Measured scan of single mutants.
Amino acid sequence: MASDGVVVEIGKVTGSVGTTVEIPVYFRGVPSKGIANCDFVFRYDPNVLEIIGIDPGDIIVDPNPTKSFDTAIYPDRKIIVFLFAEDSGTGAYAITKDGVFAKIRATVKSSAPGYITFDEVGGFADNDLVEQKVSFIDGGVNVGNATPTKGATPTNTATPTK
Results as ranks from 00 to 15, higher is better:
V17A: 10
V134F: 01
P148E: 03
N145V: 15
N145S: 09
P56E: 05
A102L: 14
K12Y: 09
A92K: 08
C38F: 01
G122S: 00
A94W: 00
N47A: 05
I80R: 00
T107M: 08
P24T: 03
D76M: 12
D119W: 02
A102G: 09
N37C: 15
E120F: 04
K67Y: 14
P63M: 12
I23D: 02
I35Q: 05
T71P: 00
T90I: 15
M1K: 08
V48A: 09
D98K: 15
G122Y: 00
I23P: 08
N64S: 08
D119H: 03
P113A: 07
P113K: 12
D39M: 00
T117Q: 04
G18V: 09
L129W: 15
K67A: 11
D62E: 11
K12Q: 08
A158S: 12
E120S: 04
T153G: 14
K67H: 15
T159M: 10
D4T: 06
L83H: 01
F136P: 08
V108C: 12
G57T: 09
P148D: 04
P154T: 11
G91W: 01
K150G: 08
C38A: 08
D128N: 04
N64P: 11
G29Y: 08
F82K: 01
T71A: 02
V13F: 04
I137S: 13
E50W: 03
G15R: 10
P154L: 10
E120P: 00
G57E: 12
K78S: 11
I59Q: 13
D98P: 08
N156Q: 13
V134Q: 03
G11K: 05
T14S: 08
V141G: 14
G34F: 04
F124A: 00
V143F: 14
E86A: 01
C38L: 02
S135E: 04
V21C: 13
G123D: 00
I79F: 15
P31T: 04
V130P: 00
Y26A: 05
D119Q: 06
V143I: 14
V130A: 07
G34Q: 05
A94Y: 00
F82S: 03
V81W: 01
E120A: 04
V61A: 11
P31S: 11
F136K: 04
I79G: 02
A112I: 12
V61E: 04
I80C: 07
F40E: 14
E50H: 08
D4A: 06
A112Q: 11
K67C: 06
T20H: 06
S88Y: 13
A72E: 00
R105Y: 14
D126N: 14
A92H: 11
N156G: 08
P154F: 10
P148N: 03
T20M: 07
G91T: 04
P75L: 03
T107K: 09
F40I: 02
N64H: 06
K133I: 06
A146Y: 09
A36D: 01
D58F: 15
V21I: 07
D39K: 01
K150E: 11
A94T: 06
N37I: 01
A106C: 14
R77M: 02
V81Y: 01
V21G: 05
F27P: 08
L83V: 01
I59Y: 07
P154R: 11
T90W: 14
V21M: 05
G18T: 10
V130K: 06
A125S: 02
P154Y: 13
S111Q: 08
D119Y: 14
V48H: 04
T107L: 07
A125V: 01
G99D: 13
P56K: 08
Y74A: 00
L83Y: 00
R43M: 04
Y115R: 09
G139P: 02
V141L: 13
T155W: 12
D126H: 01
V7Y: 05
I59G: 12
N156C: 14
D87A: 15
K12S: 11
G34M: 14
F118Y: 05
V8Q: 03
V17W: 03
I95F: 13
P24S: 05
G5F: 06
R77W: 15
R43Y: 14
G122M: 00
E86G: 01
D45M: 08
V25N: 09
N47P: 08
N127Y: 02
N37M: 01
G99V: 10
D70V: 15
P160I: 14
E120Q: 03
V121G: 13
V61Q: 12
V61N: 15
S32P: 08
I60C: 05
A146L: 09
A112V: 08
T161V: 10
T107F: 06
V13Y: 08
P160C: 09
